[in-house]
Amino acid sequence: MHEWSLAQAIVESITEAVNKKNSKRVKSLEVEIGSLAMLDKDIIVEAIKILSEGTKLEGAEIKVHEEETKFRCKKCGKIWSFSEVKEELEKNWEDTKIKDEYGTQDLSIHYFPELVFTMMSCPSCGSKDFEILGSKEITIRNVVIEV
């Protein structure tokens, strides 16, 4: 569970950029969260809000888009989504899970989403030559500022 450190870096990066542009405040921003990294949306939004207090980000509207991460096999064209394979990954990679301070056991893709290439193959042909469609972790877009 490293959502706090992500939120902190997000807030600081935005505030720095906004200060550079000499603008008054941030009106809104979009947070896109892909399911692969298994990030907790509520914690992220809450953390961004709390950490924004007293900065030019305070009070900004946060639009959250949660998106199911999908994959496309480059060999056979099969498309599948993370939720279809999640349970199997949890089982097969149980012994590499990482425990956090609250006792939660996270798959390593929580920290390194790209390890999905190690943990999973195309469900149809077995190839590792697949690509990730959409967001795999967290992306910040459309930061709208008031000048």
Binding site: S5, L6, Q8, A9, I10, E12, S13, I14, A17, L29, T139, I140, R141, N142, V143, I145
Partner: peptide, 13 residues
């Protein structure tokens, strides 16, 4: 604008 925050994370770590 879009924001990249990885550099910030690296800096802290």
């Amino acid at each position: 604008m879009s924001i990249s925050f990885k550099e910030k994370l690296i800096e802290k770590k």
